[in-house]
């Protein structure tokens, strides 16, 4: 990770690289399953308009790891990801059951404000979705709506540096974001998510719309980001999961008696174990390409 030049005290507290580096290394030295639990999901499920799409997910997600969610299409991996920052709230017919504890606080508790949740848990989407505004205004959007107006310029520079985009755009911050290439747009969206200093970054197939070179850039970025953030990524690409993830969770589809299809979590373990000696035969069938 290229270290940004140290600037003076106006810098946003959470993004000071020294603090961050110190903080993360300590955590990263621990074995994965001893790192702090960020998400603790218990029997988490989702129904859309009464139809069950996902059931009984028991899954822990740890700090400073990249956790990949893999599985065939329709297995509920994106649905699960969207539970983690309450994006499913935007679909009126969606109902979430079970518990999803975030730092021991139930995300779906009665007092919880979905907006406070999304502020801490950022998200990057399948298709790059920059706003039709300037590059600067895109990154500034989050800080502005959340009232973080102090040191905005520094905050934006830091976010763009973190997303490895600064050098490419520093001379044209006021130009429209739609003029960037697809890979640059996706890194802009990552910078946009980083600018509000989240704790977790969720990525929903972030490379599926990108060419291989842009994909490699984003994958490198993910590895960098885990020193400071917790990253959860949905991917349909098993090689990508093998390359970037520390932990991998395999989801699949259960066919109900009435022909209904419902996503389930089959197995979660270290990526190495999932891809070399999985304990469940459905996982093995999927990772060896015999199913899916």
């Amino acid at each position: 990770m290229d270290a940004p030049p140290t600037t003076t005290g106006t810098q946003p507290r959470g993004l000071q690289p020294e603090t961050m580096a110190g903080a993360s290394n300590e955590s990263i030295e621990l074995p994965m399953d001893q790192r702090e639990v960020v998400f603790d999901c218990r029997e988490l499920g989702v129904r859309y308009a009464g139809v069950r799409a996902l059931r009984d997910v028991d899954l822990n997600i740890h700090r400073n790891t990249v956790t990949a969610l893999i599985g065939p299409s329709g297995c509920g991996k994106s649905t699960f990801l969207r539970c983690l920052n309450r994006m499913n709230d935007l679909i009126p017919s969606a109902v979430v059951d079970g518990a999803c504890l975030y730092h021991d606080e139930d995300l779906y508790g009665p007092q919880i404000d979905a907006i406070e949740v999304r502020k801490r848990i950022g998200m990057v989407f399948q298709k790059p979705n920059p706003f039709p505004k300037s590059i600067y205004d895109n990154v500034a959007f989050g800080p502005r709506v959340l009232g973080m107006k102090d040191g905005l310029d520094d905050r934006i520079e830091q976010a763009l540096r973190r997303a490895a985009l600064w050098d490419e755009v520093k001379d044209r911050l006021r130009q429209g974001a739609l003029g960037l290439s697809g890979g640059q747009q996706q890194r802009l969206c990552i910078a946009r998510a980083l600018a509000v200093e989240p704790d977790v970054i969720l990525m929903d197939e972030p490379c599926s719309a990108l060419d291989p070179i842009s994909t490699a850039a984003i994958e490198d970025l993910m590895t960098d980001l885990k020193s400071e953030y917790t990253v959860v990524i949905v991917t349909h690409n098993m090689q990508q999961a093998a390359r970037v993830a520390d932990m991998t969770a395999f989801f699949s589809v259960d066919q109900g008696e009435t022909g209904t299809r419902c996503g389930v979590l089959i197995e979660v373990d270290s990526t190495e174990k999932i891809f070399t000696k999985p304990s469940n035969e459905r996982t093995e069938a999927y990772v060896t390409g015999r199913f899916g």
Binding site: A23, S27, H103, R120, P198
Partner: peptide, 8 residues
């Protein structure tokens, strides 16, 4: 050790 988590 956990600037972000503490804040959150």
């Amino acid at each position: 050790a956990s600037v972000h988590a503490t804040r959150a």
